[in-house]
């Protein structure tokens, strides 16, 4: 029994790891394709049919490029930076409930790696840790532009963590739990949290853009001002690690948003489908639905990137501190009032 548990968890970790890798790799292609479509172009189309193998070609190119470590840099930290960025972006997927329990050979197999009862806070912690990779790498490069990028990343992530946390608190008041699994279960059918927390969702969405350093909040790497920001000095595979971490973060942020606000693996009419397809196929369909939601969010990330221009730094700070934080607090107050009224009725 114990062995079966270990095997099943190990297999699940492996599968989720591979899915994250594939999604992140193909996000790079999707980004270029979508950028092309939005600008009346076609995007990469040479490697394989329709550019299918472009991520492979990019990866190979990164792999065979020369690794340059600047002589005046701090060597150990220079290598630690991208490693840490990649590592932290993998951590978060551990608490995402990818689907309902599957029944395999009479055993209930959970599609969540671990259900800790502070799951929501865990994700928040992992996200807040993500900035270290950028900061350490940027500082270790011993380059003014890199340092500027690192400093910007730090102040940006601290500023946007606060409204993000506050919007999570409002969600916590509405759901009464911190466990990702319970949150997912509560949103059965179309009973999604988005309909209870629309303002909270918008705040969370904006903060996710800032935390993943995506346009319009890509100030840590803005190439027009800072050459390349924190990864100015990076080349080859370490540069690839940073890029990959960015896409993984985007995948994770999409997964978290779909789970917290858009009903995770739930969809209208799921009971009927589950009864029709049995205890194996049903949850898998749910997982596919979750993936669809995640892809929709990734598309949103890219769509915004190729539409909205970058913020100026003071605008970024104003938005974070003077608009989002008061809005998030107002959201908490409104949620509290509404919950009290409903309880009294």
């Amino acid at each position: 029994m114990e062995l079966a548990f270990i095997i099943e968890k190990f297999a699940l970790i492996l599968v989720i790891f591979l899915i994250s890798l594939t999604v992140a790799a193909y996000s790079t292609l999707a980004e270029r394709k979508i950028a092309g479509f939005l600008q009346d172009r076609v995007g990469p189309n040479r490697a394989g049919p329709g550019g299918m193998f472009q991520p492979l070609a990019d990866g190979l190119k990164m792999f065979f490029k020369e690794e340059i470590i600047p002589t005046d840099s701090n060597k150990a930290l220079f290598i630690l930076g991208p490693s840490l960025a990649l590592f932290t972006s993998f951590l978060g997927s551990a608490v995402i409930p990818w689907g309902q329990d599957i029944e395999i050979a009479g055993r209930q197999v959970s599609l969540q790696i671990t259900d800790i009862n502070v799951g929501m806070l865990y994700i928040f912690g992992v996200v807040s840790l993500g900035v270290y990779g950028i900061m350490i790498g940027g500082w270790a490069s011993n380059n003014k532009f890199s340092l500027m990028g690192a400093v910007r990343a730090a102040s940006q992530s601290i500023s946007y963590e606060i409204p993000m946390g506050l919007s999570i608190i409002a969600l916590l008041m509405a759901t009464n739990t911190l466990s990702m699994k319970e949150i997912a279960e509560q949103q059965h059918g179309i009973n999604w949290n988005f309909f209870y927390q629309p303002l909270g969702f918008i705040i969370f969405l904006i903060c996710s853009f800032a935390e993943t350093n995506r346009t319009p909040f890509d100030l840590p790497e803005c190439e027009t001002e800072l050459v390349g920001g924190y990864h100015t000095e990076y080349s080859g595979f370490k540069m690839g690690a940073y890029m990959f971490a960015e896409y993984l973060n985007m995948f994770l942020a999409s997964a978290v948003m779909s789970t917290l606000y858009f009903g995770a693996y739930n969809y209208p009419g799921m009971d009927w489908v589950n009864e029709l397809t049995g205890p194996v196929i049903g949850p898998l369909i749910g997982m596919a639905v979750l993936m669809l939601k995640i892809f929709a969010f990734i598309f949103l990330f890219m769509w915004v990137r190729w539409t909205v221009p970058r913020f100026r730094y003071d605008q970024l700070m104003n938005l974070g501190w003077k608009i989002l934080i008061p809005l998030a607090i107002a959201n908490i107050v409104i949620t509290g009032i509404v919950i009290t009224i409903i309880d009294k009725l």
Binding site: L38, D40, R41, W303, V308
Partner: peptide
């Protein structure tokens, strides 16, 4: 304004590609 801009870019997805 942001939604308007996103609408414009979304429309361009279905336009004829100039490539």
């Amino acid at each position: 304004a942001i939604f308007q801009g996103m609408g414009i870019t979304f429309r361009h997805m279905f336009k004829k590609k100039e490539t």
